[in-house]
Nucleic acid binder design. Structure first.
Length: 432
RNA sequence: GCGGUAUUGGUGAAGUUUGGUUAACACACCGGAUUGUGGUUCCGGCAUGCGUGGGUUCGAGUCCCACAUACCGCCCCA
């Protein structure tokens, strides 16, 4: 094996691509019903697009960015997530303009890149499906986005998921809470993990996210952000919860849930699963939230946004683990068995004619004997085989066999090319 | 970025403890079993090579070193 794919990448082969399309098609159909339209943005952007939006202290920017200088000495980064690029496009194309309906609702799906140690379901090149909605502060929009995520999982056949909810409030809420949190943690500084010591002043909220056992005791008794929400922020969160209740969507509030990316505020949510395929306990399969202020951060007007993203690789692992049946596209209508050199041309003609009518059809290309060809037809799961040999050429007929029942009938070469549909509908005795 | 485990045909793999000369077995695949008909059965074929590169040795798939990749854990997250 001379060449191998770059570390952390994967070839998605026939057999898997059908599953990918099933997921993508399901998402597209669902998003359509919510009136979200597809947007495609570049796979790479100026480094600053991500560093500005994700936060300088975020792990994505500090160690996971796949960045490089191009030949024009531009600092480029492969996108580590979808939101920043969409926001940049939103601003650059002035999609906030009066001629566009608000909220402006889009979805995307495609590859993302993070430079990190690969593990199952976590590659350097991975794929996300995400949605973003710009231009409304209404809690209804938060709820719509959440319900869309939940419905997507439902459509895919997944239940047993947990929706976790929290609010980070607005800037004032966050500043107040930040101060309170530092005040609470400061006395315990020496007892915190190394990691958390660093975070305490840079981004204290993320101490709450620590998995270190020594931090857990402090996290448990830490002040709750929900107690520091301003009246506005509180009202927003209350309405989100009320409307989720109204829709019958279950959730749990986890006041210690935070985000790796700095741009979130107000409602944040995660869809979690207990499936062992992604690790023990509850793990996150989909994450989203509100990011008011992000559009301004990238030079746009004061327009709010809300969205979510989910990883396709992880989702597929989950679907496989939960044994959700997925369609496979490899069915074959007719395999045309040609016998002898004389039948070669007619075989080609018939295959083409049947294809032209919209049926899938295939034939032998390796000069296999009839027995071999039938074997192939069987392996390809052909519904019918059509046999053409010298005697058939002479009588201008062919033998059409229904593989499931073994029933074989004689048809003319003319009709099989002209109207395959009505042959299979009417000429077999035990139709189904 | 750190730690652990692994890497043998198209696939699953045995063999690595005790270095020794034909790399087991199975599946898949290909060919054949009265000259033109499938899922069973039988027979035959199928790795000059054991991730890559060095080294130790009379001799290495088996020992040592480096590198690559995969998986698991940390970190973090999708």
């Amino acid at each position: 094996m001379r060449y191998q794919k770059p570390k952390g990448t994967a070839d998605i082969l026939p057999g898997d691509t059908e599953k990918w399309r099933f997921v993508e098609d399901t998402a597209r159909k669902l998003f359509k019903t919510y009136q979200y339209r597809e947007i495609r943005t570049p796979m790479f952007e100026n480094f600053e697009v991500f560093s500005r939006t994700s936060g300088d202290t975020s792990d994505i920017v500090t160690k996971e960015m796949y960045d490089f200088k191009d030949k024009g000495d531009r600092h480029i980064s492969l996108r580590p997530e979808g939101t920043a690029g969409v926001v940049r496009a939103f601003v650059e194309n002035k999609l906030y303009g009066p001629e566009y309906n608000k909220p402006y609702k889009v979805y995307y799906m495609g590859p993302m890149y993070r430079y990190e140690r690969p593990q199952s379901g976590r590659l350097r090149e991975f794929h996300q499906i995400g949605v973003e909605a710009f231009g409304s502060d209404s809690p209804v929009l938060d709820v719509e986005v959440i319900s869309m995520a939940i419905n997507l999982f439902k459509k895919l056949g997944l239940s047993d998921l947990r929706l976790t909810l929290n609010s980070l409030g607005d800037k004032t809420s966050r500043d107040n809470y930040r101060a309170a949190l530092i005040e609470y943690l400061e006395p315990h500084f020496e007892e915190l993990s190394e990691e958390s010591k660093v975070r305490l002043h840079k981004n204290p909220l993320r101490v709450l996210d620590s998995k270190e056992e020594q931090d857990q005791q402090f996290v448990a008794d830490a002040p709750s952000i929900l107690d520091y929400l301003t009246d506005d922020a509180k009202a927003h969160f209350e309405q989100v919860k009320q409307q989720l209740d109204l829709l019958g969507i279950d959730y749990v509030v986890d006041s210690t849930m935070v985000r790796g990316l700095d741009y979130y505020n107000h409602t944040i949510f995660e869809v979690m699963t207990q499936s062992k395929s992604l690790g023990h306990g509850y793990t996150t399969i989909c994450a989203g939230g509100r990011y008011n202020g992000l559009v301004e951060e990238l030079g746009g007007p004061e327009v709010s946004g809300v969205g979510f993203g989910l990883g396709i690789e992880r989702l597929l692992l989950l679907l496989q683990d939960e044994q959700v049946s997925m369609p496979n596209d490899d069915d074959l209508d007719v395999f045309v068995v040609g016998i002898g050199e004389a039948a070669n041309a007619m075989t080609l003609k018939v295959v083409q004619a049947i294809r032209a009518k919209g049926f899938s059809s295939d034939r032998d290309y390796l000069d296999r004997k009839p027995k071999g060809q039938f074997k192939i037809a069987d392996r390809l799961n052909a519904k019918y085989t059509l046999t053409i040999g010298e005697s058939e050429l002479e009588s201008k007929t062919a033998h059409l066999k229904k593989m499931a029942s073994g029933e074989e009938i004689t048809v003319t070469l003319e009709e099989v090319q002209q109207d395959f549909q009505s042959i299979i509908e009417s000429k077999f005795s035990n139709k189904k």
